[in-house]
Nucleic acid binder design. Sequence first.
DNA 1: CAGTATCCGAAACGATACTG
DNA 2: CAGTATCGTTTCGGATACTG
Lengths: 122, 122
Amino acid sequence: MSERLSTHECVTDLLPVHLSGKWDDQIVMSLLDGPRRFGELLTALQPVTPKVLAASLRAMQRDGFVTRTAYDEVPARVEYELTELGRSLLDLLKARCAWTKEHLADLRAARAASDQLALESA
Amino acid sequence: MSERLSTHECVTDLLPVHLSGKWDDQIVMSLLDGPRRFGELLTALQPVTPKVLAASLRAMQRDGFVTRTAYDEVPARVEYELTELGRSLLDLLKARCAWTKEHLADLRAARAASDQLALESA
DNA sequence: CAGTATCCGAAACGATACTG
DNA sequence: CAGTATCGTTTCGGATACTG
């Protein structure tokens, strides 16, 4: 287990990052290659609705993860791009992917065992 | 940015772990030192309510992160303990803590800038 | 002690339609 | 095109009271 973490210091205070929205992960992934327009994200993240996507993007903009650039053209054109901070979120995604890869078998086994118990009790 | 991650492979398929509940992080932290009773968790995680704590523990048990051991005593006694899989979640917590520590200044700055803009537009 | 039952409010998500 | 408005549904967390 190596070094301990103080609950108060680390979990309560040092985890203010949410990114728990249903689409936030995918937004980050979709923006890794460069700026994307609202409509591009809308189709890339199917089946997200415009309302939810707009809300997510506003939140991520507020947190400094993406920038929003509106071009004064007709028809309208808006591009979203990851900031440096936003790109750094990839570290977190990679950590989660690595963890899951490493423990996928255990996860499946645990789920299967639980499902089995649920069946038996029914 | 180093190696890329495929959206489909990593975000969609390989991130089935939620642990996004409000108290899950703290439950893991509280159990790191060893088994804890329901009541101990209840007071340690204040101000969680018994219903929510029970729901979180059931979910974590279902996912194979904790075990529940009921002792046939009077008064009742139940202990929750992290499994090996559950302990491995510490890796994820540490990754999030490290990320936050590293980017705390940027996070605060971004928030401050957003708040400033909100004020000006009001 | 270790929960469950019931009710509640807030938030997130979603479908559809509409506007600058 | 890039959203917003409106409405409904679902999920989550919370408060209080009750039971084996």
